[in-house]
């Protein structure tokens, strides 16, 4: 019981760390494509770790399955939204920042 609680707390903390990484990427990345990367990858990995940590403490099997389904649904919807936005931005001609990006030269 004690061991499970420790594992669950560690997973929740790791999820919070990936959320923080996503927010930092959102603030610091230079263009729309890298920001899409931060939002849809880092935040969904954080949500997955959070859901895994809460699954260890769920009261029953259906609750665990529901948590896993929430994560999969978030993955599917954010992948769809990411593809749509990136495809539209590329066809609209928004330029990606290529080469070495220096943090002083904010676009």
């Amino acid at each position: 019981m004690m061991f499970e609680e420790w594992i669950s707390s560690a997973l929740v903390c790791a999820g919070a760390f990936f959320y923080l990484a996503g927010t930092l990427g959102m603030l610091r990345f230079p263009d729309i494509y890298t920001r899409l990367h931060a939002v849809t990858k880092a935040d969904n990995l954080g949500l997955g770790l959070l859901a895994a940590g809460l699954m260890l403490r769920a009261e029953s099997w259906p609750a665990m399955i529901k948590l896993a389904l929430i994560w999969m649904l978030a993955l599917v919807t954010s992948a769809t939204a990411c593809y749509l936005v990136a495809n539209n931005a590329l066809r609209a001609g928004l330029p990606p920042v290529l080469g070495r990006y220096r943090s002083g030269s904010r676009p």
Binding site: V12, T23, I32, L47, L67, I70, A89
Partner: peptide, 24 residues
């Protein structure tokens, strides 16, 4: 955010983070 898709992306991020807050 300089362009409209940047602003819209934040609404997407609000959704993902809101799911985490609600689960907690």
């Amino acid at each position: 955010g300089p362009t409209p898709p940047d602003r819209m992306l934040m609404a997407q991020m609000f959704g993902t983070t809101g799911v985490g807050i609600l689960l907690l």
